[in-house]
Amino acid sequence: MRGRSASAVRWHTHPKGQVLIVTEGAGFNQEKDKPAQSIKKGDVITIPANVEHWHGAAQATKMTHIAITNYEGDTNVIWLKPVSQEEYNAVNKQ
């Protein structure tokens, strides 16, 4: 997200859940209606099926991750609204 607007990141769900493996940098993962969690290189995050969430780099860094998802029929992700600049700024002030 470094050098980009928050709208580059979107809230989304996965019908079979998702596993993130952070390979470089640092950022955040946030589930709807829960506080954002800091994530960094080496972290493995398990996101349950159908949980609305977003993940992205912190303002001062880049973040690279491997995302593992499975399909339900033809669907592995359902994209929702962009993360607002206000939501992103609030997380980065933590």
Results as ranks from 00 to 15, higher is better:
Y88I: 05
S5M: 13
K32H: 14
S38P: 08
T69E: 12
Q85K: 12
K62L: 15
G56E: 01
A67L: 00
G56K: 00
I66R: 02
S84F: 05
Q94F: 09
A90M: 12
H65N: 07
Q85P: 05
H55W: 00
V9W: 00
D33F: 09
N89Y: 06
K81F: 02
M63A: 02
R10F: 06
V91K: 00
L80G: 01
R2Y: 06
K34Y: 10
N50A: 12
N70V: 08
Q18K: 06
K34D: 08
H65M: 11
E24H: 11
E31I: 14
I39Y: 01
N76G: 03
V19S: 02
S84A: 08
E52S: 10
N89M: 09
T13W: 01
P35L: 14
T69G: 05
S38T: 14
H53N: 03
N70L: 15
V77N: 01
D74G: 03
M63C: 05
G27F: 04
A49K: 12
S5F: 10
I21M: 09
K93E: 15
K40Y: 11
R4C: 11
G17P: 01
P15H: 12
D43C: 08
R4G: 13
Q30W: 03
E31F: 06
T46E: 13
Y88V: 04
S7D: 15
Q59G: 06
Q37E: 15
I39H: 04
E52T: 13
N50M: 13
S5N: 12
V9Q: 02
T64E: 10
R4H: 14
G17K: 02
G3V: 08
N50W: 14
V51T: 14
I21A: 07
V22L: 05
K32Y: 14
